[in-house]
Structure formats: C-alpha cells, structure tokens
Amino acid sequence: MTAGGANGSGGKILEVEDLAIGYGGEPLMEHLNFTVSKGEIFTILGPSGCGKTTLLRTLIGLLPPLAGKIRIAGEEFGPEMEREALDRLHRSFGVVFQEGALVSGLDLKANVALPLEEFTSLPRQIIDEIVRLKLDMVRLSEAIYQAPSDLSGGQLKRAGLARAIANDPLILFCDEPTSGLDPATATEIDRLLLVLRKLMGITIVSISHELASIENYADQCIMLDRHAGIIARGTLAELKQADDDRVQSFFRRHIDRRQEGLA
C-alpha cells in the first residue's frame, strides 16, 4: 500500500512552518504554521478569495513558497527538491482541483486510468476493474465513456475525485470537493472521504465551505483570513467556541431580515 511506505515524523505527515504564500513575490499570507497527522481529515476554511486555493497550490508544489518550510512525511518538500524525489512524492498525492481539471482529449475512463497506466504495471483487466470501482464510488459509472467537456460542473468534480483516488494516494488534497453538488451526492462524497480515511488510512487535506460536510468528517480545521493568516484552529467544536467575530460570522450565516429592512 502506498500509504504504508512512509511514516511521518511522529505521526505527522504534513508540517508547515512559517510559510508565506502568494504570487510573483507578493505575499498574500505570511507566518502560517500547522501540522496534519497521518490519517487525519484536515479542513481549511475561509472566505472566498482569501487564498485557500493558493495555499493548496503551494502545499502540492505548484507554487513556490515565498518563505518557510513544508515537510511531507518528514521530507522537506519544495521546488529545490530533486526531480526524482519530487515526482515520487507527487505520485503519492491525489489532488482534486476546484474545476475538476480533467484531460479534455480523453474520456472519463481514460482519465481515471491515467495514473494507473503511467505509474503502475498493473494488467489491463485490473486497471479496468479499478476504474469502474472508483467511478462507482463517485457515482459516475453511467458517464464512463463521455468526454469531460460533456459533463456538468458537479460531475467534473466527482470525476476529478475518482482520478485523484485511482491509485490509492498517501495524501488526498481536495479543493472544495462538494461545492455545487446536491445534498445527497455531497453526503455520499463525504462518506467516501471517511471510507478512504478509515479503510486505506489516506490523509485528507480539504478546502470546504459546507458546514454540513465539515460536521460530517473534519477532525481538525483552520480558518484563514486574507490579512491575518490563520485566525482559528482546532476541532469544529473548538472553532465554534472561538470569540473572533470573523469566525462567528462563518457559523452564524443568516441575516436578520427585520433589522436589514428587507422583510
């Protein structure tokens, strides 16, 4: 099992130390510190545009960190790493991008089979069986021969998830895995994340806005703010107790219509 190969330092699989993130040398957030334990479901919360996707892109090595350190399974991770070690780590990641990010020239089946064909020597039959299984897990088997351009936004996202888990990753990174899905499908995806964690020991780092999803699966959360960086951390229950206004307004998402004069 991929997940069996690496033991993080003291059960920590991802360690972020004094990280600064941003584009083109311009920091968006600085002094980020957090750790993710092996087998944990770690959720990143925060308002739109605060830099959650940017953080995720930095964590998976698509964006260079402006300062600070990222350690994955005890190994320092960054652009200065050797190509081979970097590729090896990347192969143990599963990433679900916000928009699915499937290869548009291939149908769904080929997209999900891609990591299996490239990085394993599994026989064709077994790959086909795994692909069907993963598509069943995200409830997309009816679209197996369709091109990504013929799928809806929510279907694309689920297809992206199927591809990300095709090769049983060590860490799964998800950018809003359930946004844009109906409640039943979203609950199914939440359940799938729990299954992946429980049965395969996959560590999951997920961005989410869906309170219901976070309640379903999150072990640890951090809440980001555009200017202040991490403004709250802990379990969901701990976050709900925080007396920061910005944190409170996240959980108190309703407007008083009488007060606003809208009634």
Binding site: R132, L133, D136, M137, S141, E142, Y145, L199
Partner: peptide, 26 residues
Amino acid sequence: PQAAEYRRYAEERIKERREQQPPLEP
C-alpha cells in the same frame, strides 16, 4: 476486517450501478 469492509463498501456501490442501464461503448 478492514479489507472486508472495503470490499463490502465497493460491492454496495457496484450493486447500485448494476441497477442502472449500462452505458454503451461507442
């Protein structure tokens, strides 16, 4: 037990698929 549970979960998902019309390969 873990493997058995994974297998049960998979069978459940596959059964759902079997209940639908299978898509045709062009």
